[in-house]
């Protein structure tokens, strides 16, 4: 109900539909999605490789230098921040590429929040998939390197439960990272005027 007392029906975008659109968007713009995912994959791979290396070292009975732990924690945090900026940048490019599509959706009635929702779902999807890939690469790389250095006894130093726990960490951190990185791009997209639908690239 607004100031003149006219009843305005709310328009809606059901989650199921938003999810479907975002999923299609990730699939069809595959290479763009790969670029966005790259940041998360690298960041998570680095995080998991550090965790895995520390686990192997601990299980092998070698003494760990506590200052080394601090140094690695800092490196991981810094690398995740760099990835954040990378994802934001890739997403911003994606938004500028889609100005016409966003404007068109607004011409069809989309509220700003629908646009934000679509970008968040998309980045969460990309973040999720990228995290799983990053986790796999991180574990794989460290095990391979240790295998060359130490031989097959490495397998005795791996705790499967812990490695699976890293997968959960990865998914939570990676998805969150991807979504946080999309806050600014989603705002930019939501502010795109409906009239952008008419703009012709020169």
């Amino acid at each position: 109900m607004n100031k003149e007392g006219r009843q305005v029906e709310r328009l809606q975008l059901p989650f199921r539909v938003a999810f479907h659109i975002s999923m299609q968007s990730v699939r069809i713009r595959f290479w763009r999605s790969v670029i966005t995912a790259a940041g998360t994959v690298l960041g998570i791979a680095f995080l998991v490789s550090v965790l895995t290396a520390m686990m192997i070292q601990r299980n092998s009975g070698a003494v760990t230098d506590p200052s080394e732990r601090y140094r690695m924690t800092w490196l991981v945090i810094m690398s995740l921040l760099v990835c954040l900026v990378g994802i934001t940048n890739a997403m911003l490019m994606s938004v500028t590429e889609r100005y016409k599509e966003i404007g068109t959706m607004k011409c069809l009635g989309a509220y700003d929040i629908f646009i934000v929702e679509l970008f968040f779902i998309e980045s969460a999807l990309v973040g999720f998939i990228a995290s799983v890939i990053g986790w796999f690469l991180g574990v794989f790389a460290v095990v391979l390197i240790k295998l060359f250095g130490e031989g097959f006894k490495v397998f005795g130093w791996i705790s499967p439960g812990e490695v699976l726990l890293y997968l959960i960490y990865s998914i939570v951190i990676g998805t969150l990272l991807s979504v946080i990185a999309t806050i600014i791009p989603a705002q930019v997209a939501a502010r795109m005027p409906a009239a952008a639908a008419l703009r012709v690239e020169v």
Binding site: N2, R29, K100, T104, C107, A110, Y111, D112
Partner: peptide
């Protein structure tokens, strides 16, 4: 006199838009 929501409603229900460049949503 219309606010953003009322404008969106108008665009959705009262007006249909056709563009030179067709503007279909490419992923749908």
């Amino acid at each position: 006199q219309l606010d953003a929501q009322e404008l969106a409603f108008l665009r959705c229900r009262t007006i249909g838009y056709i563009f030179q460049t067709f503007n279909l949503i490419p992923v749908m």
